[in-house]
Write a protein that binds this DNA or RNA. Sequence first.
DNA 1: AGGAATCTTGCAAACGTTTGCAAATGACGT
DNA 2: ACGTCATTTGCAAACGTTTGCAAGATTCCT
Lengths: 340, 340
Amino acid sequence: MPDRDTKATVRNITDLARLAGVSPGTVSRALAGKSLVNTQTREKIQRLAREHGFRPNQMASGLRRQKTGVIGVVIPLGHDSRQQISDSFFMTLLGFLADELTRHGYDLMLRRVVPETDADWLDRFIGSGMIDGVIVIGQSDQFDRIEEVADGYTPMVVWGNHAEGQRHCVVGSDNRLGGRLAAERLIAAGARRIAFLGDTTAIEFAARLAGAQDVAARMGLPPVLALPTHLSPDRASEEIAGHLAAHAGEIDGIFAATDTLAALCLTELRRQEIAVPDTVRLVGFDDLPIARQTVPPLTTVRQDIAAGARGLVDLLLRRLAGETTESLVLPPELVVRETA
Amino acid sequence: MPDRDTKATVRNITDLARLAGVSPGTVSRALAGKSLVNTQTREKIQRLAREHGFRPNQMASGLRRQKTGVIGVVIPLGHDSRQQISDSFFMTLLGFLADELTRHGYDLMLRRVVPETDADWLDRFIGSGMIDGVIVIGQSDQFDRIEEVADGYTPMVVWGNHAEGQRHCVVGSDNRLGGRLAAERLIAAGARRIAFLGDTTAIEFAARLAGAQDVAARMGLPPVLALPTHLSPDRASEEIAGHLAAHAGEIDGIFAATDTLAALCLTELRRQEIAVPDTVRLVGFDDLPIARQTVPPLTTVRQDIAAGARGLVDLLLRRLAGETTESLVLPPELVVRETA
DNA sequence: AGGAATCTTGCAAACGTTTGCAAATGACGT
DNA sequence: ACGTCATTTGCAAACGTTTGCAAGATTCCT
């Protein structure tokens, strides 16, 4: 730390300009690394900035340039407020998103909202002027709201389910196909009477169930039994226990909407001393790290979270550049382990 | 949507002022809900704003008021780049932080940084002018850097370990005490030769190990064997397998720095057909949801994540208000299940 | 009625950058 | 010596808010 220079603190570009003996404009250009400014003066200015630990104020810059370098990421806690707090799928996706955005020089502003208590959660975020674009993680039960907004606001990409003819740009797995894969595996492992564990007001989950129904119908089996289950671990455990008690002996295959749910279900099955996969077969969804660690290890349908994050960011950036982009549907993949 | 009013889009406060027939200043005051403006005009302006979906630009507001309403949250990926991406402890903490900050009307700006490749990660964030304060999640191996910054920048709170006489304000569990609890339990369950699984360049983990050493020494047992282990699941599995192979028969108790590590260790023990807790006792740390779901369920040391998040936000807000605050050390709690 | 006190409003100057435009400087060719 | 051209700089006007100050309007008191 040079002592004699530190006496004057440099608060803004003008201070630095005075110090360097040039005008603020020149400093701005020098710091931005523009070629219009003489190499020597530019280096001098940059050195001075470094010595004084000065960085241009992003707010002011953002205001002037009408772009902030920040992407908003919003997680709607729609159907089940306490849901995602523990859902490692969303959190892992968030982690990858953060990395991917940083890689492209963007910052990430995170917001969790409860649409029920706050109708214009999305407009407020967009209208704040703080973000250049927005990524919505999970449609929850807000499909219509998102569609409306998409009509007037382009730089938005959503993680979720793709429906024919929808207007907002979405990235997500082919949930229906995933559901089919799961059901096919359950049946191949000997199941005839399948149940689905999950909250179907979330359309991703509804699509997974629909996929399973496709297969059941095609194979001439009775329709899949939908057992509504919340995602928060505390409630889920009880609910699953209840479901199992109510339908004991009746069902011989379970498709859980999520690995988290599947793991919970597995411990419950163990508690009730129901043999897996001999008496009941079980398939999860996501292929989270936990799927390898259950006993026995969980057969599941894999979503490539990293690819999802890359897709979200890539599409958003293209939209920011003015392109119009199609949705991106990723293929899920069956991972056979030992529960089915 | 009223049609005749929507013809003119309202881009800023001045547009709205023209529409309402008042000056921009009045609009600003009306939207801020200040009492200085006549009730009727205020309501008229607010109605107009609602009808046109207008919201004041946060960048401009932030610039003028010299505060942004945004808190930065930074996760240094120090000793092990790929670490926290899957570490549900940090992610859960982040979730609670988001909720807690929203509750106080703040937004959250998330940044993950790699200090090795980017020496002034912290100054850059602070100097950006985008955030009113910063929460650092995990000291990683950046203790000194954080200390330096703390000298010149008050609105910062750090999640991590507390050391005697440190200058930055920290919130975290008493890791050393937690380590003691873990070791005591292992010994009570019959262990005599204890190993520690974790990367001790992270000072939180070092403190946990130190706590365990305290107990070993006090009880006249051989010192705890430190087995360096990375946190990323792929590397960890191999490393744990290697450790177990190298010290088979030698150790009869394992203290894992993290539940994630403990779960991994448990599956590895099962693979090597080592009986838990009969041959080897195991204690984890954190009490993440996974701890209830392992087979057998994991004995662990609980950290109250929600309380941690509340503490971080509370202290930061007090510091923003000008108070000087002490660090907050939370008591960990032993949760006895079946692995020790 | 006159003056003080209270409410409301408008004016204009910030906040710290960026950038189009024009001016200054110097090099170079004729 | 003059004009042309390229390079480097400065000027000043934005970007959209907020807010101290003062002025205008209204009420109230004596």
